[in-house]
Design a protein around this nucleic acid. Sequence first.
DNA 1: GAGAGTTTCTATAGAACAATAGATGGAATT
DNA 2: AATTCCATCTATTGTTCTATAGAAACTCTC
Lengths: 212, 212
Amino acid sequence: MTVVSLASPRRAANRRRRAPQIIEAAAHVFAERGFHGATTQDIADVLGIRQASLYYYFSSKEEALEVVCLKGVEGFFEAGKAIVEGPGNARERLRLLINSHLSPLIDRRDFVQVFLNERQHLPAESRKRIGRWSRGLERIFEGLIKEGVTKGEFRADLDPRMAALAILGMCNAAPSWYRKENAPISHIAREFARLVIDGMESPPAGARRRRR
Amino acid sequence: MTVVSLASPRRAANRRRRAPQIIEAAAHVFAERGFHGATTQDIADVLGIRQASLYYYFSSKEEALEVVCLKGVEGFFEAGKAIVEGPGNARERLRLLINSHLSPLIDRRDFVQVFLNERQHLPAESRKRIGRWSRGLERIFEGLIKEGVTKGEFRADLDPRMAALAILGMCNAAPSWYRKENAPISHIAREFARLVIDGMESPPAGARRRRR
DNA sequence: GAGAGTTTCTATAGAACAATAGATGGAATT
DNA sequence: AATTCCATCTATTGTTCTATAGAAACTCTC
């Protein structure tokens, strides 16, 4: 019987350093070519290692996809929950929520984009797991909007579900164009929030501006 | 030298009948599994024919993708242009534009979804061609919004480009969820239009409702 | 119903790809 | 300096997939 030193500090330390690089390379390639369009060779090329060496870090291409997708959603849900449960009226919290939803697009673009576009190609098991996160996120938006309607901050005839899906849709499209447009994320977030809260229509001439 | 009767009426007629079915099957499979995730065998299975028989109708899988993508955008641009150049104030035309943009999602869902998600996998040449259509569509939205700002219908401090991208983003996300939600397209279109035009905020207590 | 022309089939070549097995070199530990 | 263990490498297997070639079946027209 071979004694394997599972607790070896070296092994853990090295993997901690290298594994994130492997996953980042995978995220980059998956984002660029799609899961099925990307080959493990492409990932290896980014890292400058051999294709077979990747299998020291993951046991299948699909497993790599799941890790990338998880890194693409994790944080969104919890950050959103914290904002919704925090202080401020519904309008203010929605602004924060939109901002917090757009922010990860700067430094974690590849991961987010892979989550958005490629999660459908996960095996049923992990797709379900990932789906829970994203449905949870939908409910965070919807819940906040419902609350705003109940408290009279938002129009009573608003369909909260549609509004939530609309906001998520416009935010989730941002990764695909925000590089070409060179608008800072803060500007995008501010415009988006005003768009859905105040609308585009210019206020009637005599309208008094409400305290914000 | 072989004489080929290119003008044969039968050949043209039969192809006209069958080719659209082939492309529709391709659209369906591409929409479901993605371009690289779909095999020509999958397409053949839908049609109940052999995989190799497909190559009578297209000379490569990529060519099939291009045809599907083209069917996914064609019409959008022209329909949009007609509305923008038509009668009505900017608000009314934007409502119509959103409605016309969402409508094809009912009967041409597969084509639209393939255009949205898979066009990136087209070879450079045709991707460029398709890209022109979609940039044209962006400009249609942006132009109409700019017009609304100029005429004082929309807020002067609105960023028309951001607004256009926001609206396109929320509309383009609809194909991915409108089946699960069972809201009729007309409802979705109405909610979306009100959301971006009037906003979510409930009007100040004493506000007079503007003519619509 | 013969013949021309169209559509689908069988068979297969050839390439690309994911994944496995076992070897190798080198760094850390003793 | 010897040993252990880790990260990467070489070599390869088996599969899957696109695309081609040529035969067969079907359909329409005359």
